[in-house]
Every structure is written in structure tokens, then in C-alpha cells.
Design a binder for these strands. Structure first.
Length: 814
RNA sequence: GCUCGGGUGGCGAAACCGGUAGACGCGAGGGACUUAAAAUCCCUUUCCCGCGAGGGAGUCCCAGUUCGAGUCUGGGCCCGAGCACCA
């Protein structure tokens, strides 16, 4: 084996920083990355989740995601689409504000410099972003329309204000959304969350629960993302049942149950301690104990209430009538019943619910069996809740005895409906979206409070309500926004009557900023409407969306909700924003999560400096499946760099005379097919492996590669390593950008193998292989196989059976 | 507890519809070139037995279906993520 006869001239050596600088400038000058939004005929909107521009700069995880999207986008462009790949910044929010407080600067000054740094890094990475359409959520030109979105919800009756028990973080001194509370602690700082009562703005996302749920079936999303959303929306099917209170008043307790079939076993009722009817049903004798119990539970924060293992409660002194049995059952209050779910009241069926069993045992309430395994003795006492509904039937349930659980649910619900004692309902776990934040760094909620006119929306023509520059923006624990300390800002005349009024001083949740940004990108620069109808019709919904799994529930759900609302309001003609969504994986380093404290954070700048952006990008995509992430190992990068250098020298030294090698060309066309199949599946790691494999074939033996053998590879690699690809494309004498050259043609006849390896098995065990024509017959293959001693020695007598899979294997069963 | 992922060489990983397990890359070992080193190039590299030809075992564990199972079915163990007193 000799060497490939090429002593690279030193001037031909691959210098990434030269190549990358050259092409980034060239792209800028010729507008290569610009999309003709108005003139596009085959629009392809390749969106990635926009980053929060942190002071630390671009994280390798950001770059992993953006590169993955960029490859897909560039590939679609090579397929002939007009690809739009915008990128902006999600720069409002607690994160920026806390960081600014920590280092004693103002976010209004910090963010622009962070954005400049991000922009520099993103350009360095060679993304095909059309920077004419960038945006930042902190720009008044942007948040003017975030405020407009709020006003649309208000107009459509979907925004309302209420006093609510909210999660209060004593450390960040702000209200948190339910989703920002992880196991009772603040998601950001880890402090234990307390309960507080505050006036808050809410969006009625719960009204949209059925649609948010049913539309999921129409989306090209992975099952895991859709399941996460389904679980979050949390649909339960059951019945609402009214239990008449045995008092002089004509009132009843409404409960929700998923098990109406067990109503004959309901031996008591439980109200949540804060339930309004508690005042009605508490008797004089029980007044003190009920009052004390309510006071005790009110003090508890949500956390200790949800994690306390012992169930406690007190009797109210009153009874209600079980509508099925006609028997009086006691009404209790207990903290295991939550006011915010269902009706805030339950029927206790200790025989068939583990929690009720525990409670009834503790307080010696009657336990009745109403479901039993078929043929089982219905009078056997229960020593645990019986919840196995497979092949079980109702017992002790009057006319409903012997029905299956499912049939019992239907028939008993129908009976309750007939008697006007209840009805079948679906209820949802999802809560309305609290968007108020008692913070500084966000868009002010566009509302004015007037003594005479009440709550008055800021007229649309007065938007934006500018966030004032205030030096003192640190929140305190008064629960009011920092803006409320700035009278010169919040004192305004009422837009209706002109009298002295005051502004809402809360700002809105960052999730609102990001719930509509994808609508804005095509219309960046349009100043009289949030999204221009023509552009919107052409470019939306988003063709392909890529982002992190951590947003699989909230951001995606809020975006879907806002899109539906805007659709219902007549502003959009589609109700689902993201036709296709894929979540990328996470990058770890040497098997461990990257973190500052571990000191194992990969700084993209240093790696791009050392290896070049092309190598870094390609390595990130090579280290594991894009949707799963991978393990970043410094040692691994060199292999990718070697691969790029081999391609570089092969192209530099290629010949145009003579004919290409048929075997090499066969492998080339197989590679074109493989890469073209892998990229749309986001199987980038295997696409790169296929190209490496091809390079190994190309460079085998002492031969100078032919131009036809290398030129298409430049196109194949271009989505991954765009700068090198452009440089080599130019070297090959091409005038246009490689990204306007189209995807290399695939010729199936050139890719076809003329001999294949056929595996020969005896009883399923591999005993040899045959080099044969792909269309060999079973008989010919069998004869050939039996002539091999390595095979025939295992075959005694006539085979009982022969299995032949064309182009794959021959299995002889003896 | 429930839901969703995942478990394959020394390591990152491939195997797309049930058909030759370990492609590709890293690391390691050996060699060529070199005064030497780096770089580059070539060979070997799942484990066990064997000088070799070859044989045996092997994809977390235990069963099953099948001519054939990493892949399908049932049961179990472990890791990761999300939800969780949701009636």
C-alpha cells in the first residue's frame, strides 16, 4: 500500500479561519442568506426556538439546536425551497432582571450588549439566518404588539382579573406560575414557595382545553411531546353529582367523580376547607373545630399540603343525602380535597378509592363494597380499597347489580341525569394562565384603572405603553410591582373620561412574549400591524419548528392557545402554529451534565477558534442522534477535522481528464441516497458517517480522484460545513453559491450493486457468505451454498426447510 | 404511584419493515515515513478457547412467538425526564 501521491503545497493547506471569514463576508455582501419573502414561490419556514441572550454568551446547547435547524434549512434550500430561517431574542423576564440585579447593572443596558455578543457568535457559526428579520421581545416595536395581543384577549372575553392564591417566591419576591413551581420550590432559586392572595390577570386557557387536546391528533409532532401536552391538559371523564344537604336550606353539594358507578358506596362527603359551602353546613357544635381546622390549612403553603402523608379532616355536623341510596351521609372537610380541581368537593367511596379508604379508616366512617370480582362474595369486608376493575361487577347497588364497571358508569350517569341529580362531564386539570408579574423587566400590561370608569384598556392607537427607564427596579416583598413606586409613570388621565387615573403596574409573563413571536418574523419592519396579512398567509403556519424538550409543555401550549385565540378573533386563518415540531436532545460533557460549578462548560468561541466553525458544527451533529443529544468529548473532534481535511485535499487534487471509477461512483450514488434520506429524518450522525465511509472508499488505493467523484460530495457536506463547501465549490470553478446549486442527482442504476453478499445460515446460525448476483434464485443459491464445505458439514441429510430472502440470506433448516 | 424515553465493545454510537450485531468516529496496540518528534498513511481491535484452520458465547435479566429476535409479546431489574392527595 503506497501513499496517495499528493504532497500538499503549503498554500493549499486548509485554514478554517481564512475560509470562514472570507465566506461570511461574501454572504453578507451578496445577500446569500436573505430570503425574498414577497417573491417566494415555495416557502419553507424553518424556525428554531429563540434564545434568551445571557451575559455568558451562546451556550453549546443553543448552538447544537441552531446548527441542527440550519442543516435542515440549508438542505431544504438545496431541494429548491425558498427557506426562511429567522432568529431573534427572548430578552425580557426574570432571568435577565435577576442577573442585572446581581451584577448591579440595568437590564436595559445589559441586554443590548448581550445581544451584540450573541449576534457575533451566531454569525461566527455560519447560520443561514436572514438578519434583516431579527427581533427582540424588549424592543418597543415588538412589545407594542405583545400588548396588542393582550387587548385582543380582553376584547374576546378571555382575559380577566381575580384575586387568587398564588405561588409566591420569598426570594425572588414575585408570583410564580404553577409551572414554575417544581416540587413546591421556585424553579429558579429553589426557595420554598408560599401562598399569597393577589389581584392577578388571567387568560382563560381552560376554555380551550378540549380544542388544545383534540387538535394534537392533527399535528406532525412526536408522541412524547403530544403525550406531555395531553397529561398537562389532563382530561378526566366522569360525572357531576348533586348531594342534597339535610338542612332547612334548599342547597346541595356538587361533587365531581370519575366513578359514578360506585355511588352506592359513597358513605360521606368531603369539602375542601376553603369551599364556600363550609359556612352553610357547619353546625354550632362543630363551629370551633371547623374554624380552627380552616385556619390551620390556610396557613399551610401549597407544598406542605400536597406532601403531607397523613390525611386529616373534621366533621361539619351536617349530613347530605346520597341520591342513590337515599341514606344520610356526613359532610366533612379535609385538606386532601383541593379547591382548584373539579368542584372542590368529593363523594367519599372508601371501598374503591385508596385515599378515601385511608381517610375512612382513620375517622371510622363506614366502608361499603359496591364492586367485586365476578362470582366473588359481595359481603366479604374490605381490608383495602378494591380498585381492580378488570372483570369486576357492581354489587350492593340495587338495580345496577351485576353490571360491569363501564356499563355501571353509563347506566348510573343516565339515572342521575333522568332524576336531575347529576350529569356526565369532562373536566380538565389545566388551570387558567396567570400572566401578571410583579416585576420590572417585562411589557407593562396595557390597562388603566379609573375611579369613574373602572378597568379601561389602553386604546390600541396609544400603544406601546413604554416601559420607563427606572433606576430602582429591585422588587420588594410588598407584592406590588416596582413600577408602582413611580408615580410620574403610573399617573395618567383616563382614556375615557380624562379624569386622573392610574396604570396597571404589573408586567406580563415572558411566556406571552414568546407565544406569538413566530408570527412577527416575516413582518419585522411593518409598523402599523403585528403581522401583515399577505406575508402571514404565505409564510404561516411554521413549516418546521425545532427546540428544546423543556418547552414541550408550556411554550408550545401557550403558543397554540394564542394562535387559536387570534384565529377566533379573525386575525389568522389557521389555529395551529407549528405543523411539524421536533425536540432536540441535550449535550452532556464526558458523561456529565454541563454546569459552571463542574467547570465542564463548552464555550463555543474557543472551540470554533481552535477547530473552525465547520468542524465544530459537524462534530456537534456527529456525536449522537440529534433528537437524543450526545456526549461531547474533546478527543472526538479531531476525527471530524481529519475527515474535512481529506475532503479538502481530495477536491484540491482532483483531475478532470479520464473517466471516474465505476465502483467509486456506485458508492457515491449510494451515499447521495443515504444522506438525502437521513437529513429529513434529522439523522445527522449517520449522514456524516455515510460521507466518511465514502471518503474511505474514495481514497483507497493509489489513485487521483476524478472531479465527478468529489464534486457532489461538496454539495452533500454543504449543510454541515457551509464555509468549506463554498470554498471548494469555488475551487471547482463554480460561480454561484453552492446553496443555489441544487441537491446532487441520484441515479439508481449507478447505485445498484452487481454482486452482493448473501448470508448462509444453517438453523439460523451464520455458517458462511456467498458473493452472488443480486437476482440469484433460491435453487442456485442453495446449490452454491451446499458446495461450500463450511456449510455442508453442518447439513446432514435433506434440509427440512429452506428460507430464502432475496439479497439478504439463505437459511437451511435441518 | 402514573406517563414517556432509554439500557448494545475500553468510549460516543450504527443496525430504518424481524434477516450477516458492532457501520462511522474516538481511544488503544502494531507498522511505514523521519536523525527524532509531530503530522500523515497502512494494519489489528466484542469476549473466550485455539499456533492455525476453526469453534463457542454475546445487545440488562427471565420466559415466549418464529426457520431466524438488539428489534415482536409477557414478566422483572436499572437509569433519565415529566406529572403527582387530580377524586
Amino acid at each position: 500500500m503506497g501513499k496517495i501521491p499528493q504532497e500538499p503545497d503549503i498554500s493549499d493547506a486548509y485554514d478554517p479561519s481564512f475560509v470562514e471569514t472570507k465566506w461570511q463576508e461574501r454572504w453578507l455582501v451578496s445577500g446569500t442568506n436573505h430570503t425574498d419573502l414577497a417573491g417566494a414561490t415555495k416557502p419553507f419556514y424553518a424556525l428554531m426556538m429563540f434564545p434568551y441572550p445571557s451575559a455568558e454568551g451562546l451556550h453549546v446547547g443553543n448552538l447544537f439546536a441552531f446548527t441542527g435547524n440550519d442543516i435542515f434549512a440549508r438542505f431544504q434550500r438545496l431541494q429548491g425551497y425558498d427557506v426562511f430561517e429567522p432568529l431573534g431574542y427572548d430578552a425580557f423576564g426574570i432571568h435577565s432582571e435577576n442577573y442585572a440585579l446581581k451584577i448591579g447593572e440595568h437590564p436595559g443596558e445589559l441586554i443590548p450588549s448581550n445581544i451584540r455578543n450573541f449576534r457575533r457568535q451566531l454569525e461566527r457559526a455560519g447560520l443561514m439566518v436572514d438578519w434583516r428579520h431579527t427581533l427582540s421581545t424588549t424592543d418597543p416595536e415588538y412589545y407594542k404588539w405583545t400588548q396588542w395581543v393582550f387587548l385582543q384577549l380582553l376584547k374576546q372575553g378571555l382575559a380577566y382579573k381575580k384575586s387568587a392564591a398564588v405561588n409566591w417566591c420569598p426570594n425572588d419576591k414575585t408570583v410564580l406560575a404553577n409551572e414554575q413551581v417544581i416540587a413546591g420550590a421556585c424553579e429558579r432559586c429553589g426557595a420554598m414557595v408560599e401562598q399569597r392572595q393577589l389581584e392577578q390577570w388571567f387568560f382563560k386557557i381552560s376554555d380551550y382545553a378540549p380544542r388544545l387536546l383534540s387538535n394534537l391528533d392533527t399535528l406532525d409532532w412526536t408522541d412524547s411531546t403530544r403525550t406531555a401536552q395531553r397529561n398537562w391538559i389532563g382530561k378526566s371523564t366522569g360525572a357531576e353529582v348533586e348531594f342534597k344537604i339535610d338542612l332547612d336550606v334548599d342547597m346541595s353539594v356538587k361533587v365531581f367523580t370519575t366513578r359514578p358507578d360506585t355511588i352506592f358506596g359513597a358513605t360521606y362527603l368531603v369539602l375542601a376547607p376553603e369551599h364556600l359551602l363550609v359556612d352553610v353546613v357547619t353546625t354550632r357544635e362543630e363551629f370551633d373545630s371547623v374554624r380552627d381546622y380552616r385556619a390551620m390549612t390556610a396557613k399551610q403553603d401549597l407544598t406542605s399540603r400536597k406532601t403531607s402523608k397523613e390525611k386529616t379532616g373534621v366533621f361539619t355536623g351536617s349530613y347530605a343525602t346520597n341520591p342513590a341510596t337515599g341514606q344520610p351521609i356526613p359532610i366533612w372537610i379535609a385538606d386532601y380535597v383541593l379547591m382548584e380541581y373539579g368542584t372542590g368537593a368529593i363523594m367519599g367511596v372508601p371501598g374503591h378509592d385508596e385515599r378515601d379508604f385511608e381517610f375512612a379508616t382513620r375517622y371510622e366512617l363506614p366502608i361499603v363494597r359496591v364492586v367485586a370480582a365476578e362470582g366473588h362474595d359481595a359481603s366479604t369486608p374490605l381490608d383495602t380499597a378494591f380498585v381492580d376493575n378488570e372483570d369486576a361487577v357492581l354489587v350492593n347497588s340495587g338495580a345496577f347489580d351485576a353490571l360491569s364497571v363501564e356499563e355501571g358508569k353509563r347506566r348510573i350517569t343516565a339515572m342521575l341525569e333522568t332524576n336531575q341529580q347529576g350529569r356526565g362531564v369532562n373536566i380538565y386539570r389545566i388551570h387558567d394562565w396567570c400572566i401578571s408579574r410583579q416585576r420590572y423587566w417585562g411589557p407593562p400590561i396595557p390597562i388603566i384603572y379609573c375611579d369613574a370608569c373602572g378597568t379601561v384598556p389602553v386604546p390600541e392607537e396609544d400603544l406601546p405603553v413604554l416601559l420607563p427607564y427606572v433606576k430602582e427596579f429591585k422588587p420588594d416583598d410588598s407584592g406590588i410591582s416596582p413600577l408602582a413606586r413611580h408615580e410620574e409613570w403610573y399617573r395618567v388621565p383616563c382614556p375615557k373620561c380624562g379624569a386622573s387615573a392610574r396604570r396597571e403596574t404589573d408586567v406580563s409573563d415572558t411566556f406571552l412574549d414568546s407565544a406569538w413571536y413566530f408570527l412577527r418574523y416575516p413582518s419585522v419592519g411593518v409598523d402599523d400591524q403585528p403581522f401583515e396579512p399577505g406575508m402571514t398567509k404565505k409564510w404561516l403556519p411554521v413549516t418546521s419548528y425545532i427546540g428544546g424538550n423543556e418547552h414541550a409543555v408550556l411554550h408550545l401550549l401557550y403558543s397554540r392557545f394564542i394562535t387559536m385565540v387570534l384565529c377566533d378573533g379573525g386575525h389568522l386563518d389557521f389555529e395551529e402554529p407549528f405543523t411539524k415540531f421536533r425536540a432536540h436532545g441535550m449535550i452532556v460533557r464526558e458523561g456529565a451534565k454541563m454546569s459552571k460549578s463542574r467547570g465542564n462548560v463548552v464555550t463555543p468561541d474557543t472551540y470554533m477558534e481552535e477547530w473552525g466553525a465547520d468542524t465544530f458544527r459537524t462534530y456537534l451533529m456527529f456525536l449522537g442522534p440529534f433528537e437524543e443529544g450526545g456526549d461531547f468529548r474533546d478527543k472526538g473532534i479531531s476525527g471530524v477535522r481529519r475527515f474535512i481535511e481529506r475532503l479538502w485535499s481530495s477536491v484540491k487534487s482532483c483531475r478532470s481528464d479520464g473517466e471516474p471509477d465505476a465502483d467509486v461512483m456506485r458508492k457515491l450514488h449510494q451515499t447521495i441516497r443515504k444522506v438525502g434520506e437521513d437529513i429529513p429524518r434529522l439523522s445527522y450522525n449517520t449522514a456524516i458517517a455515510a460521507m466518511m465511509e465514502y471518503m474511505n472508499v474514495l481514497r483507497r488505493g493509489e489513485r487521483v480522484p476524478h472531479r465527478a467523484e468529489v464534486e457532489p460530495v461538496v454539495q452533500l457536506i454543504s449543510p454541515f460545513a457551509p464555509h468549506v463547501a463554498e470554498e471548494l465549490w469555488e475551487q471547482l470553478g463554480r460561480a454561484e453559491s453552492v446553496f443555489d446549486s441544487g441537491w446532487p442527482g441520484f441515479d439508481a442504476s449507478l447505485a445498484a450493486e452487481n454482486t452482493i453478499e448473501l448470508a448462509v445460515q444453517v438453523n439460523g446460525k451464520l455458517r458462511g457468505t456467498l458473493q452472488v448476483s443480486p437476482d440469484i434464485t433460491q435453487a442456485a443459491a442453495l446449490e452454491l451454498a451446499l458446495s461450500e464445505p463450511g456449510v455442508s458439514k453442518f447439513v446432514t441429510g435433506t434440509p427440512r426447510k429452506v428460507v430464502f430472502v432475496p439479497k439478504r440470506l439463505l437459511n437451511i433448516v435441518v
